[in-house]
C-alpha cells in the first residue's frame, strides 16, 4: 500500500505560537551548540528534550523539531570525534597533528558553517509558517511528521451545518 500523507498546512493556517515553537527548535539548537562546545553531546540532549516537549504539538512543529534534532546527530558525532582526536593529540605521546587531522578540522568548519546557515534559513522559514527541507533530513522529517499511519482514519468530527 502506498504511503499516505497528511496535507501540508499553509502559512495562513498556522498560528503564530506554533510558528515560534518551530523556529525555537533551530534557535535552541544554536544556543545548545554554543553551550555544548566543550562537550558536543550537550546540544543533542537539549534537542531531544525540546523535541519531546513539542511532540504533541501540531505536525508543522513536529516536522521542524524533528528535523532540527536528527540533523544535529551526525554533526554532533563528528564534532565529538574531533574533540576526542584533539584530546588524544594533546594528551597522548603517540598522536600528532597530521595533514589528515588538519583536513578533518577544515571539513568540520565547513560543515558547521553550512549547518549554521541552513539553521538560520530554516528558523526564518518556520517563523513565516513555511516548510524548509534539509538535504536527507527534510525527507525523513516529512515522513515522520506527515505520514498517515495504518489504521488511522480521517474521521470528520466537525462538519458545517446543513444549510
Amino acid at each position: 500500500m502506498e504511503t499516505q500523507f497528511y496535507e501540508l498546512p499553509q502559512p495562513d493556517q498556522i498560528p503564530m505560537r506554533e510558528r515560534e515553537d518551530a523556529m525555537g527548535s533551530y534557535l535552541m539548537m544554536f544556543a545548545a551548540l554554543g553551550a555544548g562546545l566543550p562537550l558536543p553531546i550537550i546540544n543533542l540532549i537539549a534537542s531531544v528534550v525540546y523535541y519531546y516537549m513539542n511532540k504533541s504539538n501540531s505536525r508543522f512543529v513536529r516536522f521542524h523539531t524533528y528535523q532540527a534534532l536528527i540533523s544535529s546527530i551526525p554533526l554532533t558525532l563528528m564534532n565529538a570525534f574531533a574533540m576526542f582526536w584533539s584530546l588524544r593529540i594533546l594528551l597522548s605521546h603517540e598522536w600528532s597533528i597530521t595533514a589528515n587531522y588538519k583536513g578533518y578540522i577544515g571539513m568540520l568548519v565547513v560543515a558547521n558553517l553550512f549547518y549554521f546557515i541552513y539553521g538560520i534559513i530554516a528558523a526564518i522559514k518556520a517563523r513565516k509558517g513555511q516548510m524548509f527541507y534539509y538535504w536527507v533530513f527534510g525527507k525523513l522529517s516529512y515522513v515522520h511528521a506527515f505520514t498517515i499511519k495504518e489504521g488511522t482514519t480521517k474521521e470528520v468530527f466537525n462538519a458545517p451545518p446543513k444549510l
Binding site: G103, M107, A111, V136
Partner: peptide, 18 residues
Amino acid sequence: KITVVLGLVWLAFAYFSG
C-alpha cells in the same frame, strides 16, 4: 552524496595543508 562531498572537502583540506 553528502558523504562524498564531505570526504572530498576533507581530502582537499588535507592535501592543501600538506
